[in-house]
């Protein structure tokens, strides 16, 4: 044994030592660290660049006025900065979108994962995903020129040209693929043994899908919902085109509304002088939007973790 070791390690060197330097490892590691750092610093940079003008804004306008008054007229001679109408607009349109997208998205997901033949699924899933590739500006004009004029006007004759309903409905259609595709992925990942277990107890297809597969995929489905809602809250183009730019403090979806995003887009592309209070208001609204989306994401992470703990 001793002789064997000695012969394979001339000069008494440790035979277990690293013989070749591994430069590739270090290079790859460096590139990966850089990639992570870029995205981290970008996020950080965005937060800072939104935070500074926002803080300047709140030096002039109180939190109370911003959060609890109901008139948003930053471009008027006598500007008022109550953000509630924008929040209301975002809320109403998001709720409409979610009411459309969750049932249809989850329904398509259940159909695709549990009912469709493999052939049908192979055609339908990519088709559905094409919907996700349509530019939102196209959706916006579809809402304004088609849904409002040919679908909603005949039903609600006194609907306004720019209205929250058409924007919400079309936004709902836009996020169906997000919800359907992610939910379908979650359901497809449910082990087939669970389905077999349900069928072996005499369960029908519906009982298996709704009472075993959907609960088993719940963490993924909830994540899909939250991502869909986040997309709805952050969506800008459809609302700018179809919902109008009047900050109305109303729950009536037949009226025009302005959302946080469409205010940012409209004011940002207008000729607001840099450094003015109007200019800073854009960042204040942006900060609010950021906080809302951030909280949503935290909630979704919590929910996913909760169901995962319970079920896996």
């Amino acid at each position: 044994m001793t002789t064997a070791t000695a012969s394979s390690a001339p000069g008494g060197l440790n035979p277990l030592r690293q013989t070749k330097p591994r430069y590739g490892e270090a290079v790859i590691r460096g590139i990966l660290v850089l990639a992570a750092a870029v995205s981290l610093f970008t996020t950080f940079g965005i937060v800072i660049s939104v935070l500074i003008p926002s803080l300047e804004f709140f030096a002039e306008i109180s939190f109370t006025e911003f959060l609890f008054t109901t008139t948003w007229t930053p471009l008027f001679a006598n500007p008022q900065y109550g953000v509630l109408p924008l929040l209301m607009g975002t809320f109403v349109i998001t709720v409409i979108a979610v009411l459309v997208a969750i049932p249809l998205g989850l329904g398509s997901a259940i159909y695709l994962s549990e009912y469709a033949s493999p052939k049908a699924r192979k055609v339908l899933k990519p088709t559905l995903e094409v919907l996700a590739g349509i530019p939102t500006v196209v959706f916006g004009f579809f809402a304004l020129e088609f849904i409002t004029v040919y679908v909603l006007k005949p039903i609600f004759p006194d609907i306004q040209v720019f209205n929250a309903l058409s924007a919400g409905l079309v936004m709902g259609i836009m996020i169906i693929p997000t919800i359907a595709s992610l939910s379908e992925d979650a359901m497809a990942a449910v082990p087939s043994g669970l389905r077999d277990g349900a069928y072996a107890l005499g369960a029908t297809k519906r009982q298996t899908a709704l009472r075993v597969v959907v609960p088993a995929a719940l963490s993924g489905i909830v994540a899909a919902f939250v991502l869909g809602v986040s997309r709805a809250i952050g969506e800008t183009m459809i609302v700018t085109i179809a919902a109008g730019l009047q900050p109305n403090m109303t729950l009536n979806p037949l009226q025009g509304m302005q959302t946080m995003t469409s205010y940012i887009a409209a004011a940002g592309s207008g000729d607001v002088p840099t450094g003015s209070i109007e200019y800073k208001s854009i960042f204040a609204v942006g900060l609010l939007l950021f906080i809302i989306t951030f909280v949503m994401n935290m909630i979704s992470i919590r929910l996913v973790r909760k169901y995962r703990q319970a079920y896996q």
């Binding site: 669970l194 069928y199 005499g202």
Partner: peptide, 16 residues
Amino acid sequence: RRRIGMVFQKPNVFPK
């Protein structure tokens, strides 16, 4: 299947 039950190789308990 109601009358003829089945137990599988991998214990397939439901996430309940």
